[in-house]
Amino acid sequence: MREITLPISDETVRSLGVGEAVALSGVMITGRDAVHKWIVETFIKKTRPPQGDDLEVYEAIKPLLNGGVIYHCGPVVAGLDTGEYRFVAAGPTTSIREEPYQADVMRHFNAKGVIGKGGMGAKTLQGCQEVPFVYFHAIGGAASLIAQSVRRVVAVHKLEFGVPEAIWVIEVERFPVVVTMDAHGNSLHEKVEETSKANLEALLAA
């Protein structure tokens, strides 16, 4: 398994291919539905003015995302009452819901990797080549196991979005993932969809 430490360079991104198993280490952030919508509306399309601590949070995540990774994850977190946070269960959530936003978010921050599950669509794959970045697939549901590679919760932002939707800044060690969309236009998901479509048609005709 290939070891990669964050931040990731463009050269490393381009050297990754579909099917490659990777162990990621370093500091990354979680972000899912509420976070992607908030980033796009407030800082990219600017259809809503920044409110509350929006600008502070933006400045805090900017350096982390430059060369960094965004993890589609809504964790189970212990220590909510004491503030001594610890990830108890932290598998990936389904990524396709971020399809309208993902490529724009990655371009805006110069981010180099998305971790999620289920893969993403054509707009994201196009972004993978242009920005460039790659899509890392984690094993859906393997939440207790993945939580063990989270060494430390560094900070949390936007907790008002709720525990699953907040921005958790986490330090991970050897987080196991597989590249399923690379920066050269290859997508395992596209391939499996094509094959399974042909198989479905054969079964429907039978």
């Binding site: 994850c73 809504g74 964790p75 189970v76 108890v88 269960a89 932290a90 598998g91 959530t93 859906g140 549901g141 939440a143 207790s144 196991l145 939580a147 063990q148 699953p164």
Partner: peptide
């Protein structure tokens, strides 16, 4: 691991 540690199998409970 989830069974041993009594932690959720999946974070989406």
């Amino acid at each position: 691991l989830a069974r041993e540690n009594s932690t959720p199998i999946c974070q989406d409970t």
